[in-house]
Amino acid sequence: MRRALAFVLAATICGCAGNLCLRQGMIAVGALPGAAPAELLAFFAAAAANPWIWLGIALEIAYSLLWLAVLSWSEISWAVPMNALEYALAAAAAYALLGEPVGPLRLAGIALICGGVALLSGSWVQAGTAADVSLTHRI
């Protein structure tokens, strides 16, 4: 569990930094004006030309690799909610770096999310492998 927790922490830090970069890039790209094919194409082309987007993508790839390791050890109903650790990090960083306001309501929401994550972390069970997990459903 400690190893999984450490990897989740490292992954959320990468994910949070990645999202900050992506949002920084999307501020430069501007809001998607409409859903016409030409508009979508120009939108994604502008995104692909932005260095912040590429830095964000690199960090998201690091996140994905760490996440892959976590998913090899842990049940998804344990690991996925752990991503909420990112919210506390992101709210602090978005406030400090992007100047986004964080009011009392949002702060309360983030606090509840963190409390929920603390409860969840105590519910770790050693996840099974293919041998003892039912894999009969088609998905």
Binding site: G109, A111, G116, L119, L120, G122, S123
Partner: peptide, 16 residues
């Protein structure tokens, strides 16, 4: 316990 944690997280989402 896991269900309770998810419940808390969900209320937090609603507030946010």
């Amino acid at each position: 316990r896991r269900l309770a944690g998810i419940g808390l997280v969900s209320v937090g989402v609603l507030l946010t």
